[in-house]
Design a protein around this nucleic acid. Structure first.
Lengths: 250, 250
DNA sequence: ACCTGAACACCGTTCAAGT
DNA sequence: ACCTGAACACCGTTCAAGT
């Protein structure tokens, strides 16, 4: 997290006037953009805003970044640079998967804008490719067919992303903002007419407490892995009769 | 789907000049907005665009819609109006759940903008509340605790949304656009260096064929329900020793 | 090579005014 | 009640210049 502040610490003090024009670099531009996105939301990132913070004209930014799409791709890459892939060295595939999911979670906790970045439609670059490849390797090693492995990976990604942002409670802003939103949710759902919405009224505290991320995340991952295990088992019984596969999931 | 054309058929022919000023209504505004969002993507929806299509000044739209947020909320509601809730009358909770998930899928297939609409952070209105309430009721009836029921519902929603948009292959545009994107994916992943990315090269056809929505959706729902079943079973065994619950999942 | 300045075609939203 | 017109503070991006 702190490594992204470096770029900004050299600049900071807001709208500097004309002097010591801090030569831009792609890394600095992307670093500041990611920092702004994480602290103020992805919508706060604009060429004009970046230029302003750098004390430079909007068009100067274009020398280091081809377009907004390019900028967002680069932000995704820089974010994933901190991804901890050490879990691939576990021996059991379940531990490998769990490890990667928790590593991805950590990235998303450090970078609230990650949800938006990861759900953009674009071709992945180096870091994202490595994550993708490692995951497929684990699932193929566990005995899943290419198709299943891909589907399962996709669901892993979706699941982690949506678990971290905690569904309804998703806020890319500050901790305080999230508290306020939680209070609003509690008031809203708790105040619904009880005859018409008995289950919603009952669930109101749980809906509002979506801030309780740890247990929420664990529940979701357990749910997902339970499903994957079940599929693995049913695959193994199918292979028993068909037997066209090299390795069955253990 | 066609009911949204009604509003537009009266207007159409693009930028009409001054005459027969078609009195706006909230329903007409929201209907056209949803229609534009589904055909051209959510970003194509703007007050200026709506005003232009209606042959009216941008500010006229504000008489029927308080703000952009209000407009998006209303679009979500109008979209969910076509939600088929008949599945709640099934007898087994698994069938009820499956039915609702497939009904939601249908809504999202009819409305490509639904993904964006449903992942906005806002308090739900009537139609969305009813869907939420019905789902909780089913899960509570199946014996899940309020907290689990809420978590599971959340995952259902996330799962359906992300399954329908098919992860990487998500395109809110036309069928043709999706084909193009699929071809790009195939070329990209298929063309990666095989030593470095063996699993990605192998999976390339599957990644590109994410257009194959039916089997993809079925796989995801099966995965999710397998996980839920497993949780239900482990809950039942826990209750065996604790026994603090009214009903256990059957 | 790197940055500036002006322009184009867009946004959401406010405010005062017309009918 | 419903719509207009002008304005404010924003967008991404292009193009022709400056140094």
């Amino acid at each position: 997290m702190d490594q992204h502040n470096n770029n900004q610490d050299q600049i900071s003090e807001g709208t500097r006037k004309g002097k010591s024009p801090v030569r831009l670099s792609r890394e600095a531009v992307v670093g500041l953009a990611l920092h702004i996105a994480d602290k103020e939301g992805i919508d706060a990132v604009s060429f004009r805003r970046l230029a302003n913070d750098f004390g430079v004209t909007p068009m100067a930014v274009y020398r280091h970044v081809r377009s907004k799409d390019d900028l967002l791709d680069a932000m995704t890459e820089q974010m994933l640079a901190s991804f901890d892939t050490s879990a691939v060295r576990e021996t059991d595939w379940r531990d490998q998967v769990r490890g990667l999911l928790y590593a991805l979670r950590q990235v998303l906790l450090d970078h609230p804008s990650g949800r938006v970045l990861l759900s953009r439609r674009s071709l992945p670059e180096a870091n994202r490719l490595k994550l993708f490849e490692a995951s497929l390797g684990i699932l193929r090693g566990a005995g899943f067919e290419p198709r299943e492995a891909f589907f399962i990976f996709e669901h892993f990604l979706n699941q982690v992303v949506s678990l971290v942002v905690a569904g309804d409670g998703y806020v890319q802003g500050s901790e305080e903002e999230r508290q306020v939103w939680g209070a609003q949710l509690l008031e809203f759902y708790g105040g619904l007419p009880q005859q018409e919405f008995p289950w919603l009224v009952e669930a109101a505290p749980n809906i509002a407490a979506c801030v309780d991320k740890d247990s929420h995340f664990k529940f979701g991952i357990d749910l997902l892995l339970a499903g994957v295990e079940a599929i693995a088992v049913s695959m193994r019984s199918k292979n028993h009769s068909a037997g066209e596969q090299k390795r069955a999931p253990r």
